[in-house]
Design a binder for these strands. Structure first.
Lengths: 240, 240
DNA sequence: CGCACGGTTGAAGCGGCTCAATCTGGGTGG
DNA sequence: CCACCCAGATTGAGCCGCTTCAACCGTGCG
């Protein structure tokens, strides 16, 4: 019954078997989506809430001058935007980064889950809390960190999130991000991202290539980033 | 019975009289706090949820190098951090900017309110949605906007939020922010904030002095900021 | 084969920072 | 009532991190 979604939520609240099967059954409507396809675009009338089951996606907003700012990365088990169904119109877009499996929960189903009991409801609140923490950490990065610190911090965040869902080894995980995507996430130029990655590589701190991240010196990477993982509130995923 | 808090929430969901009086009664425990005092500090064990009834506050995080990043401004009617009671330890601090009246709702009371019915619960969800939207807008500002655009955008945000709670006239509102505070919010230097404010003043766009904001040319200000107020989901406050 | 996309590198410019000094107004003690 | 004080505002000069513009390279794919 369990999937990436129920595993993640059970890290937030002690879900019973009934809760898990309710949540899993809510994920019956799954779509397979290739890389680079939009789940929803700015201005669309949203209805279903999207949940990532496999693959990566990101939410972003375009600016009048053609620039793009990425607002969040969505990994397996994540809600794409838990509030989506409350809006009249999307104020940002969501696009897949890799091929992905996405569950679609209609608004009514979300409401049913919330009202199904306090445990699921509590897990949803935790999920929102963590999402907000991540947004705050991004603000801190963009406001007060240098280019190198920012990129190091993003890599730490994504690595730990991957590790928390069991998709990382001790020093490595998938990281299917192009330098352009990283630039749009941290508010830098692709050119400068390239130079920073080079310096991290030459400094034997970490290496990003062919879609995966290798952490060479975890202590130094965390020091550069000023990284403290507690804000991600990760739990070891449930076994079995 | 109504106060800043119930007025704000009733913009998010159709609260009945019973809901309003429940919420108002939850705000019985009010503290008056002078300017510059902490409601809670990083590392503290949080318990009560704070709600601003009068005055301004801000949440911020200190960085190892002594820098400060402000994460949010709290105005009358706002939750300081609706998730606060779920945490084991605060990961940021909250300090008053002006003298303030703050209601303190213990964890148990929050849970009781959530379970009191779907309307209050829905209003809380909306409140979280709006808070997230604001965080996202800050990320966009810090990632992709110039200093002038960023400051203009922040002024627009705060002006509209003040207007939405009935605390602004057509072209003016209180804005008790020092240039240092603005700098810590938008990720700039106080010196540079000063220069930008000067240029906005000389350009006859807006003027910030002695604790209040005067918008001279609203159209140009919004154009500079690239501001679209819909993300704040403001409703006219209830009358009576 | 050749195109397209992503990565890499160099050179020059600029926006915002640093450092440092001066100014201003409101509050305070004598 | 005045001298003083201090936080916040203001201004100048020089520097640096990141951007811009413009190439060139490598590789997967039609």
């Amino acid at each position: 019954m369990a999937n990436a979604f129920t595993n993640r939520l059970s890290g937030y609240a002690p879900l019973g078997d009934a809760d898990v099967s309710l949540l899993a059954r809510a994920c019956r409507n799954v779509r397979e989506i290739p890389a680079g396809h939009h789940l929803i675009m700015e201005g669309d009338k949203p209805d279903p809430v999207f949940v990532m089951l496999e693959g990566w996606a990101c939410g972003y907003k375009m600016l009048p001058d053609g620039g793009r700012q990425i607002l969040a990365f969505m990994l397996p088990g994540d809600f794409c935007d838990i509030h989506i169904a409350m809006l009249k119109a999307m104020d940002h877009s969501i696009v897949t980064i890799t091929a992905a499996k996405v569950a679609m929960l209609p608004r009514a189903q979300m409401e049913a889950l919330v009202e199904a009991g306090p445990t699921i409801s509590r897990a949803f609140w935790w999920s929102q809390l963590v999402d907000q923490s991540v947004l705050r950490a991004w603000i801190i990065s963009m406001g007060r960190r240098t280019a190198k610190e920012r990129i190091a911090h993003l890599m730490c965040e994504l690595y730990i999130r991957m590790r928390n869902i069991g998709l990382a080894t001790d020093d490595k995980c998938e990281m299917p991000l192009t330098q352009l995507v990283i630039a749009d996430a941290v508010g830098l130029t692709p050119v400068h991202v390239n130079r920073v990655l080079k310096s991290l590589r030459l400094g034997k701190v970490m290496e990003l290539s062919s879609g995966s991240l290798t952490i060479i010196d975890p202590v130094r990477l965390a020091a550069i980033a000023g990284f403290d993982e507690s804000y991600l509130h990760g739990r070891l995923r449930q076994t079995g």
